[in-house]
């Protein structure tokens, strides 16, 4: 298993840096080309949300990303037989998946709202015409979470007192996303 860690200041400009790095690591990990755009957008949404929350609550605190290439997580063991591989390894990381975690330190109650179930229908949670402030963020931060739920193959959003951890993953290989057609590459 290969891990890339990235720590960014809570500045909007660094969200793009995080997107670019996540896309590069995902490509190297072997994510299907059709899913790279999903990784890029979902990571961008998670980081944007975290940056906005930090700017309100703790602008001096950094935001942490972990990019985990779940492939090749069984090290060479010479002549020793491989131990049984559990469905979910003890460290919680899922094998043969590309996983991204974005951890912020803003109080979850105000920053991220209620927990979002990974099966929540994102499009039904948005009421854009009912919430149209003239601010830059014309949509609720929950819309960003809904977009993540709509994009990532598997999502968990864990709010707690010390911040929120958004964990999302995609299968490695050529399986891509089953329900969506390939995205254009223009």
């Amino acid at each position: 298993m290969a891990i890339v860690q990235l720590t960014i200041s809570a500045l909007p400009a660094h969200v793009r840096t995080a997107r670019l790095m996540a896309t590069a690591v995902a490509r190297r990990a072997g994510i299907a080309e059709s899913a790279l755009d999903e990784v890029r957008l979902a990571v961008g949404e998670a980081c944007s949300r975290a940056v906005e929350a930090h700017r309100v609550h703790c602008p001096d605190q950094p935001i942490q990303l972990e990019l985990i290439d779940g492939a090749g997580n069984r090290p060479l063991t010479g002549t020793q037989p491989d131990p049984p591989v559990p469905a979910t390894p003890p460290n919680g990381h899922q094998a043969q998946r590309f996983e991204v975690t974005v951890s912020d330190r803003a109080p979850a109650e105000e920053a991220g709202g209620p927990p979002v179930n990974s099966h929540a229908p994102g499009s039904e949670d948005t009421h854009p015409e009912d919430s149209l402030p003239g601010d830059v963020n014309g949509l609720s931060p929950d819309v960003g979470l809904a977009v993540i739920v709509g994009l990532a193959d598997d999502v968990s959003i864990e709010p707690h007192d010390g911040g929120t951890v958004v964990r999302m993953s995609w299968p490695l290989g050529n399986t891509g996303t089953a329900v969506d057609p390939p995205l254009s590459t223009s």
């Binding site: 890029r40 957008l41 961008g44 854009p128 003239g134 830059v136 014309g138």
Partner: peptide, 13 residues
């Protein structure tokens, strides 16, 4: 080349 929910919010605004 890229649009996220922040951009959507601007368009909705």
């Amino acid at each position: 080349e890229f649009l996220d929910s922040t951009g959507l919010g601007v368009l909705v605004g």
